[in-house]
Lab assay of single mutants.
Amino acid sequence: MQRVNMIMAESPGLITICLLGYLLSAECTVFLDHENANKILNRPKRYNSGKLEEFVQGNLERECMEEKCSFEEAREVFENTERTTEFWKQYVDGDQCESNPCLNGGSCKDDINSYECWCPFGFEGKNCELDVTCNIKNGRCEQFCKNSADNKVVCSCTEGYRLAENQKSCEPAVPFPCGRVSVSQTSKLTRAETVFPDVDYVNSTEAETILDNITQSTQSFNDFTRVVGGEDAKPGQFPWQVVLNGKVDAFCGGSIVNEKWIVTAAHCVETGVKITVVAGEHNIEETEHTEQKRNVIRIIPHHNYNAAINKYNHDIALLELDEPLVLNSYVTPICIADKEYTNIFLKFGSGYVSGWGRVFHKGRSALVLQYLRVPLVDRATCLRSTKFTIYNNMFCAGFHEGGRDSCQGDSGGPHVTEVEGTSFLTGIISWGEECAMKGKYGIYTKVSRYVNWIKEKTKLT
C-alpha cells in the first residue's frame, strides 16, 4: 500500500490518463441519441435557420407576430419608411378606419389613436360632414345658397324668414311668412316636400332668348283662358290664391305678392273693366268669414305684352289694390325667389296649380277651390304637342294621358313649387288646347323671366 501511494504521488498524470480511459469505455446513459432527441424537440425550422439574422431580410411573422416588435424591426421587413409607417399605425392600436367614419364618399386613412378623412370636392370637416359648395344638395341650405369668396357655403332665406341657429334652416321672422300653410287642420295635408338634388348652379339658368321682337298675326285659340281631375282644397291650404270678379264672377285667378299687390295673367284683364279681388276665398257660393274683398285701382301688364300681336306672350300683369290686405292664416303671400332659384325650383319637376275653373272641358265651374299636382314636361315634348308657338318664356306641365289639367277660369292662378315646406311661385296658368285632352298640356308663363320686374313694381313704400 505504501508503494502504491508513492507511485500516485510521483505520477499524477498517469492516474488522470487511467481515469479518462475508464470513462470513455463506459456506456453513456444520461444523453439520448440524435434521433430520439429530435422526437422530443420537434420544432419547425425557421426561415433563416442556421444563418445569422443580421444578414437576412426581415420576416413579418418572425419579427412582429411571434413577439412584439419595434418600429426598427418592422422597418427591416418593409425596407421602406412609408410602408412601415402605414403598417405601424394599425399594428400599434388597430384600424381606426374600420367603422368607416368618413361621410359623403370620403376616404379614410388610419393613424395612431386617430384617423384622417380625405374629402371629395365640396366637403370638409373631420368626417367630411361639412358642405362647402352650393353645387351639392344646395349646400344643405333649406332655401338659398351662395358661395363666399373663400368658396364656403353661405345660406340665406327669402323675405319674412331668418336663418336658424344651425345656419342652414329657415324659420319665420314674421307672423305670416310667405308660402307657408298655417291653418292647423290643413298642415297635415301639406304636399310632399321637395329635397334639393345635386345641381350645376353655374349652368342652372337656361341660355334662352326671349323672342321679344317676333311679330306674329293673332292666333285663334280655343278655350285658351284655361282644375280638371283635381281635388277639393281645404280652407287655408292655398292662402296665396285669390279669385278675380268682373263682368262675371271667378273669371280668373291670381296670387298675393304682398298686402297691396296681386300677380295674374295679362290676358285676364281689360282696361276700363272694374275688377274686384277676393282673398281668403274657399267656396265661392258661401260666406265663410275668411274672405277679404278689395278693388283694383291700377293694372300693370308687362311692358312687352301686346294682345294685338299675341294674347299669351309675356302673359303676366300686376294688380294694385285700393287697401292693403290683412295677412292671416287664410290670406298669405306666395314666396318669389330670384331668377336663378325660381328656375331651379321649376326644374324640380312638379308643381301645384289651383283655381275655381271648370271641372271638365266646357263644363261647370268649381264651387270649392280645386288643386292638382302636375309634372313638368320637357321642352321637346311640349313643342311636338301643339302647332302653336311655345315661346321661351312659357313652359308645359300636365299629363300625356289627359284627364287632369287646369281649365277655363283658372287662368292667372299660381303654379307653385314647394321647397322644404315653403311654396314659391314658378308659373302662372296661361293657356292650353281644350282641357285635359290626351297628348295636350297646360301652358304656363315662366315666372323666372319676370321676377325682377315683379319685385321692382310691387315694392311697398
Rank of each mutant, 00 (worst) to 15 (best):
R62P: 06
N328K: 01
N38E: 15
L32W: 12
R140F: 07
V228Y: 08
R191E: 13
R384K: 13
R379A: 08
M8N: 12
I300A: 03
T29E: 13
S49K: 08
P235N: 05
D95F: 05
I256Q: 01
N135D: 15
L24I: 07
G254L: 01
A192N: 12
Y441L: 12
G21T: 15
K362L: 06
E259T: 06
L327V: 08
N100P: 02
G21D: 03
V154E: 07
Y371V: 15
G236M: 06
L130N: 10
I7V: 14
E72W: 15
T287C: 08
C141L: 00
P239Q: 01
V199C: 05
G409R: 12
V269R: 02
K68H: 14
A26E: 02
L325P: 00
C170S: 00
G442D: 03
A279P: 00
E61G: 15
E129L: 01
A9M: 07
T271F: 08
V416G: 04
R294S: 02
K260P: 01
L425H: 02
V278T: 12
I390A: 08
R373G: 05
G398W: 03
K109N: 08
S220G: 10
H361R: 12
Q216P: 12
D150M: 09
E231W: 11
F78W: 07
Y22T: 07
V92S: 13
R384T: 13
C155H: 00
V92Q: 15
E323H: 11
N313Q: 13
S329Q: 07
K455G: 04
A436D: 12
E66A: 06
E86M: 15
E434W: 11
K387E: 11
D150G: 10
W431S: 13
Y47D: 09
G21V: 14
G442F: 05
E86V: 15
R384H: 09
S70N: 15
C134F: 02
F360L: 13
N258L: 00
D111P: 02
N306A: 07
G421L: 04
N306W: 03
V278E: 03
H415G: 01
D338R: 04
E171Y: 09
S448R: 02
C155D: 00
I275D: 02
T158Y: 04
I297Q: 07
G160I: 00
F348E: 14
K455S: 06
V4Y: 06
H34F: 08
H400W: 09
A307C: 05
R180M: 06
L23R: 02
E285P: 10
A192R: 06
F176G: 02
S25H: 05
P375W: 06
N328Q: 02
I299K: 09
T84E: 10
G254D: 00
M65R: 15
H314G: 04
A164C: 04
E27R: 06
N59P: 08
T158P: 04
A9K: 08
G413I: 09
S448C: 03
A207L: 11
S220Y: 05
F176R: 05
G349Y: 11
S182M: 10
Q167E: 07
C18A: 10
L318I: 04
V195G: 13
S114D: 11
K311I: 07
C128V: 00
N245D: 06
N5M: 11
T342D: 03
V154F: 11
S430C: 05
E433I: 05
V248I: 12
G253M: 14
F87G: 15
Y22P: 03
N127W: 05
G125T: 01
R191H: 07
A265Q: 03
N306L: 05
G253S: 07
L189E: 14
G160P: 00
H361P: 15
N245C: 04
Q96E: 13
Q219I: 11
S25I: 14
E286A: 09
V416E: 02
R373C: 03
S350K: 12
L369P: 14
A37N: 03
E231Q: 09
F144Y: 07
D93C: 02
E231K: 11
N343C: 03
H289C: 09
F31I: 15
N36C: 04
I344G: 09
E420K: 07
W88P: 15
T290E: 05
S184W: 08
A380I: 09
G246S: 11
L20S: 03
D110H: 05
L367R: 14
K146S: 07
K347T: 09
L319S: 01
G349F: 06
C252D: 00
H267I: 02
P120R: 11
T458A: 06
I275E: 01
F224W: 12
V4C: 12
K387D: 13
T461F: 11
A279D: 01
E320D: 01
S169N: 12
L32N: 15
C119T: 01
T422C: 06
N328P: 00
T85F: 06
I262C: 03
T276S: 09
E73M: 05
K455Q: 10
R373H: 14
T84Y: 04
M65G: 03
V92L: 12
G229S: 11
G355R: 14
A337S: 03
P175Q: 06
E35V: 11
C117I: 00
A9C: 13
R3M: 12
T264P: 01
T225N: 13
F221R: 12
R46M: 13
Y312T: 03
S423L: 11
G21Y: 13
C141N: 01
R180C: 03
G409L: 07
E420C: 07
E86N: 15
Y450V: 01
A250D: 06
R358K: 13
S99V: 05
G421N: 10
L52G: 08
